[in-house]
Computed example of a mutant assay.
Amino acid sequence: MAENDADALKLLHELDDPEWIEWPRGYDPRKTGRLFADLLARLNVAFESLCVSEQDVQDSSEYGRITIPDKATIAGTRIVVCVSKFGSLALICADNPRAYLGTEEAQQEGVLDATDLATTRAALTGLGYVVIPEELIENEYEGQTLLRTPGQRVSWWDRYFGER
């Protein structure tokens, strides 16, 4: 579990293996799928609503997403949880990934309630997911796995949630 941004950044570097781009060494899609199903069930109960899931995104390091409907949240904005195939990494995003600079900005804008954020985070961490702040995942990628063309900006998002 990442206790702070420095721990989270260290974890991102540790998981960055140039030989394994789309999923990590030892990746077990069945185990990941069971964990994802458990997360969906927890969120359905926690928000007293049917959340929508998309999974097994082809040619992507992202395993899937769960959308908590806007009608189930205090602020009336949907919450999207993105789950990576790497190290049980997860993101919590208001409305959509990259719609806000992160959960802090979304809270300041009044579109993400602190209670909903805490409920979502508890469901994730209770299953062993590591929640990476969206603000951090948008930082420039510092690893060696993804190639860049001159002038191209690549972020940690591209590494652990983007398409290949």
Rank of each mutant, 00 (worst) to 15 (best):
A2T: 08
E3G: 14
D5A: 12
A6N: 12
A6H: 09
D7A: 15
A8E: 09
K10V: 03
K10S: 13
L11G: 11
L12A: 11
E14D: 10
E14Q: 11
L15C: 04
D17I: 08
I21K: 00
E22V: 14
W23R: 14
W23K: 13
R25H: 09
G26W: 07
Y27C: 07
Y27D: 11
Y27H: 14
L35S: 07
L35A: 06
L35H: 00
A37Y: 12
A41K: 05
L43Q: 03
L43V: 08
N44I: 08
V45W: 15
F47M: 11
V52E: 15
V52I: 13
V52M: 13
V52Q: 13
S53F: 10
V57C: 13
Q58D: 15
Q58Y: 15
D59K: 14
S60F: 12
S60I: 10
S61D: 05
E62M: 14
E62L: 15
Y63W: 13
Y63C: 04
G64M: 07
R65D: 11
I66F: 07
I68D: 03
P69R: 02
P69Q: 08
I74F: 01
A75M: 00
G76C: 12
G76K: 05
I79R: 03
I79T: 10
C82H: 10
V83S: 08
S84G: 06
K85W: 01
K85S: 09
L89S: 08
A90W: 02
A90R: 07
L91F: 08
I92P: 03
I92W: 07
C93A: 14
A94P: 07
A94T: 04
N96S: 14
N96R: 14
R98I: 06
A99R: 10
L101D: 02
E104D: 08
E104L: 15
Q107G: 02
E109C: 06
G110R: 04
G110E: 01
G110K: 04
D113N: 02
D113Y: 06
A114P: 04
T115R: 10
D116V: 00
L117W: 04
A118W: 01
T120C: 07
L124W: 01
G126W: 04
L127C: 00
G128K: 02
G128Y: 05
G128F: 05
V131K: 02
I132H: 03
I132C: 03
P133N: 08
I137S: 01
E138Y: 13
E138D: 07
Q144P: 04
T145I: 06
P150L: 04
P150I: 12
G151E: 08
R153C: 15
V154D: 14
S155A: 15
W157M: 15
D158L: 15
E163P: 06
R164Q: 11
R164L: 14
